[in-house]
Nucleic acid binder design. Sequence first.
RNA 1: GAAUCGGUAGCUCAGCUGGUAGAGCAGCGGCCUUUUAAGCCGCGGGUCGUGGGUGCGAGCCCCACCCGAUUCACCA
Length: 512
Amino acid sequence: MNKAEPSLSEQQQIRREKLDQLKELDVNPYPHSFDVTHYSTQILDNEDEYVTKTPDDPSKTKRVSVAGRVMTRRIMGKASFFTIQDKEGVVQVYIRRDDIGTDLYNKVFKKLTDIGDFVGIKGFVFKTRTGETTIHAEEFQFLGKTVRPLPTPKEVENEDGEVVTYDAFSDKELRYRQRYVDLVVNPEVKETFVKRTRMVQAMREFMNERGYLEVETPILQPIYGGASARPFKTHHNALDIDLYLRIANELYLKRLIVGGFDGVYEFSKDFRNEGLSRFHNPEFTQVELYVAWKDYSWMMDFMEQMIEHVALTIHGSTKIKVGEHEIDFKAPWPRIPMYEAIEKETGHDLSDKSDEEILKIAKELHIDIEDGMGKGKMIDEIFGDYVEPKLIQPTFITDYPIEMSPLAKKHREKEGLVERFEAIFNGKEIANAFSELNDPVDQRERFEEQARLRADGDDEAMTVDEDFLRAIEYGMPPTAGIGIGIDRLAMIMTNSESIRDVLFFPQMKPEG
RNA sequence: GAAUCGGUAGCUCAGCUGGUAGAGCAGCGGCCUUUUAAGCCGCGGGUCGUGGGUGCGAGCCCCACCCGAUUCACCA
């Protein structure tokens, strides 16, 4: 035994001994393959098709071959019941010494097969006295020994038909760190992640149908930009340069619009060097989409249609239960200019106020004011505290102060504002979009303003990206762009309270 | 970063005003050929998060630290 290995529990030692005993019996503990013909739910959902109609002569009925993990065992001497869990669910198996042979039954099944081990069985389907659809095993094959015991939760249906779980594997830290175990023993976890994938697929299909091109852009970037955030820094040895992990892919996708694509999108992992919370993981997924010739009003139409489509695809309904609320994604959604939304909740019309007046109002509203907070930041704070949490149903908030939006085009009518919207669901920002700024002179000025903020100590402000400026100097058509937070959308679509519940492997501190 | 709560057997948890660590499941040995939280008889299993301290004596009290959960603050 490897001395570096941590000391083994009694149960781990016993399982290793069983592994040796299997080899001594010439049973391969790790065979190479097994022919699966059916999945558990396929049999259970179509029991009329599979349950034998000739119980007195099983030779005349269908055979099924199923593989998976042993999850429970009930041994009654010369016959036993156990359950197999496969990718779709759990099915019960009935196995008898006289069907599979004394040695295989007594030595291999009874003595050396543990909960968690992989087995394959072939047999026919019947109903037990208590009415459970069960596979009567005629062949049993060992498919993989596990040397570490799984947690052993029990699910029971009580008299009211509710499923009660005993001894659940519930320690959140262990569930996140050992997601593989969480997935095995907590079936709803699998469902959440399947839904997440179907959600992404539905979005991808929706965009593909409209002719937009899925692309890939650099994650390692010499100049990061496209959002206000602190980056992760890394180093390329051969070039001997520092690189940053992208915080957004906006500036690269817009370069592709310059290059002549009409619509491009990317599902992208972005990285922000910030704290963790139930809404924040240092790496997270966005989809960003840029469409030429369009503006932010068009993008609102697009988004509400796409998300309605996603809800229908996943849930078959536009209405989704999220926590205490039922959220209805049926398009169209209300579109409320930011100043109107603030005025409605606070009574203050900020639209024609000076910086000093807004500062005074912010103080009245008990907003935490920090040094160097500009007008835009204060308005954002007021909005975040007084308006955003109240927007449970899907809502577009439109027309943001120019100070907070260095990449958005100036509003066609309203002075001091840009054509930007955020989509708010369940009191949280899910998407951010604008009519993209394509005036290179204006863009340079906005970058320079960012650079000033940066020089004044705002380490989330953007840096001047000369190559991006050069690109739009060559000319970018009118363009609408959007970024949608996939993790947060997945939280809503799966009724999850924490971003960690929709990430297979959320960021954790190192163990130990 | 702050506050609150928590860390005891493989899993879920008890453990009183400090008195030498318990249950169920899981495991091991036996019985049991339609069970289903299967049942019955018997048995083993712990550096009580880590390190200090105060007690004759610490899972429990004190201090420091580690890890986590939740809430709050900043970012999507």
